[in-house]
Design a protein around this nucleic acid. Sequence first.
RNA 1: GGCCCUAUGGUGUAACUGGUUAACACAUCACCCUUUCAAGGUGGAGAGUACGGGUUCGAGUCCCGUUGGGGUCACCA
Length: 478
Amino acid sequence: MRFAPSPTGYLHVGGLRTALYNYLFAKKNNGKFVLRIEDTDRNRLVEGAVEKLIETLKWVGLDYDEGPDKPGDVGPYTQSQRLDLYKKYAEKLIADGNAYYAFDTPERLQELRDYQYKNKLQPKYDKLALKLSKEEIEEKLANGEPHVVRLNVRSGEKIKLNDIIRGQVEFETDIIDDQILIKSDGFPTYHLANVVDDYLMGITHVIRGEEWLSSTPKHILLYKYLGWELPEFAHLPLLLNPDRSKLSKRQGDVAVEDYRAKGYLKEALINFVALLGWSTSDNREIFEMNELIEEFSLERVHKAGAIFNIEKLNWLNAEHLRKKPAEELLSMLKEEFKNSKYADSIPDDDYLLLIIEAMRERVSFVREYIEKCPYFYERPTGYDEAVIKKRWKDDSQELLREYVGRLKRIENPQKEDYEKILVEIAEEREIGKGRLIHPLRLAVSGVGIGPGVYDLLFILGKDEVINRIETALTKISK
RNA sequence: GGCCCUAUGGUGUAACUGGUUAACACAUCACCCUUUCAAGGUGGAGAGUACGGGUUCGAGUCCCGUUGGGGUCACCA
């Protein structure tokens, strides 16, 4: 198996899914997963793209057995380092009459296309170069005339493809163009390079996006002309924008790096992307990587394109986040703190651990451990007006004073103590606990929502609670 | 436009080789729980399976046609 991206700067989520399916299939079948860099387009090279790609792949946990930075049996893994190989096979194709040199100028090709377009003809190369005599070719080559190598497609044949996902697909060779195999700069095109490499690297299953389906017959022809056995093909459905067009940058984030930066967990991203076009018969939703490996099968990949629905990703993120052990959340949270406004005063571990448990069911992202409960890290800067209006009663002042009074008498109060004194007051005065709970929460946190009050009070601690209530008593009025 | 792929609620999917009122999850709404907010639980609304024919006792599942969507037609991958 292999994942063969071109280094254009970032890893597209569609690419992530392709990589994932390849990875899962390889792991499931005890095969190898190879990373190959397809950098044969010199015009689109992006500085540092390969490193970035590798880093991202590493982050999501798709480790490959062999790749540019992980030498193995079938290297090199970067196409620009395999040029002689492509040349060798191109020459073999030419020698066998299955490919040929062509010397057409871009202008002539453009004119040809314009003519064909105007006359509603199939746009294809007209095989003009095939009329050249052997001597003419020799001479042009000797003169160093710019040239390409084209695939010689005979018309009137049928190419049958048995796609694992789509079943049998047929193409007429008449509509297949004499694809350029070697460009005039000496680099191969994707078609040649990918076939040569897949064969030489022993790739048994080609799993790639559906956008490759229509050029597959060209690849099949190459295998045939080279006398090589065909690999299995599986063309994955595309990932779509909400308007059903191909997933693009214009309508949101498409780079894995973007989602990482936004705080999505790799577990959630992997889980989500796995479910875009694949499912188990019981419709299970939550998977860890090892479970995906266990369950995955190409036969259960859906055929139609899938819309990238961010709401479900958010839900999955919350699910995976909640599953994490406290220790792991702690280190992630501390990392998050470094980039927050509290970077200079990061609370100690014990304190954060309490918050983690109190907030666990209330957050979907790590950063929300900070954003959703700033009152754990600083005193309220104000009090929610709507909550004051709704919860602050005539007796609130007095009740809170009473609460503070009793709290002061307790040495080292535990969570139960905070509850006990509240219940006592409520019972003695024959009022509902809510009469106390809501003003208390407001006084101490400034807002009307959050973890259970007793948790809240206990975490803040006796001194802080007393201090905050006293401050609130001077500030809240109605 | 040619060729190819494709079509189940708003979204992602399920429904063994055709056989009960088309299931699950996300989102949405209501209720319960917790005197908060979440999480959790329960229930509701939401598709008669793009449309039209046909085969069959019976079709989301098979066949034909139509329509919609997508991909591809580069010296890009």
